[in-house]
Design a protein around this nucleic acid. Structure first.
Lengths: 162, 162
DNA sequence: TTTATCCAGATAATTTATATCCAATTAAGG
DNA sequence: CCTTAATTGGATATAAATTATCTGGATAAA
């Protein structure tokens, strides 16, 4: 049970895109360089973010990616769902209907109790993900960082969009 | 991000093993038949449960599996950890240390804020899993079932251990 | 010694990760 | 106005890792 690398990458990348001024964008190539990740795979993840509306893109020369919503409106749940899809982690195959003592479909109106129990836990997970915004994470990170480092990043962004 | 089939299978199987009387056991073959799942793969999952102490095994003719703890002492977290391993779903590769603005290791004493945020959500997930015992799930299931079906299962178990 | 069982390692299928290629789009320069 | 360069968009191929399945050996009772 693992989340793909894209979840880590794109979360960090959103914190950088948050620094991009209105009307500008950062290319996949630049973002891949910033974190030293393979640009081809990152490009695919960025498209997933775009389809979810988390980022917006501009094609052609001078184009690139920027955030599609405010940092307050982007949660970790948004990112995970965009990258990993909406599918729940626990897959119920209704094995209660199998075998010599299997239930008949008509007796299975209520959801399987095992599946329900796992669904409850996943609800708690999703709720905890939804409670954390990009804004909150960035604030936390800024508090633990030095002014020099923050300036360093801001400077890099400025150079990219020049 | 998915849980393996073994999680579903073994959770259901634990609810059956709970009906096995002291000193007796059910074979992997019997359990595989009961739920119509491949016995070879189930055998591997059962070994993971055994290593975690959730079930106990007896080898040789007449052997088999029984629960290794009481139904109150077995939680969904125990099962998930036994089958899926203790590894967290989010994998932090410390990409904050990469690239032109990467932090130096000495400036990374505090955990990465992105990783911490995901860890918080996973804590909520684990907590929710730990809150659900096999006893609770079985009680719920029994309440939604018919006396006939419960007797049917009890009868099947009796025949297997005879 | 035979039979039923668990156990451990090899194999196959699926998913995830990565790379490659080309079309569509936009900006800038001649 | 046309060409060129830089970019996203999308499909497809390849490699690595994970999950699922099988085969054969170890163990213990009858």
């Amino acid at each position: 049970m693992q989340l793909g690398k894209g979840v880590e990458w794109t979360t960090h990348i959103c914190t950088v895109l948050a620094l991009v001024p209105e009307g500008k964008g950062l290319s996949v190539e630049a973002l891949a360089d910033f974190f030293e990740v393979p640009s081809a795979y990152l490009a695919k993840q960025m498209q997933l973010l775009r389809r979810a509306g988390i980022v917006a893109s501009v094609r052609g020369k001078g184009g690139g990616y920027r955030l599609g919503k405010t940092v307050n409106a982007i949660t970790l749940l948004d990112i995970v769902r965009a990258i990993e899809g909406p599918m729940p982690a626990f897959r119920c195959t209704e094995i209660r209907q199998n075998g010599p003592c299997g239930l008949r479909p008509k007796d299975c109106k209520r959801p399987c109790e095992v599946a329900s129990a796992f669904a409850k836990a996943e609800d708690a997970y999703r709720e905890a993900l939804a409670a954390q915004t990009l804004a909150g994470i960035m604030q936390e990170a800024a508090g633990n960082s030095t002014p020099e480092h923050l300036m360093e990043i801001a400077g890099w962004v400025q150079r990219q969009i020049a």
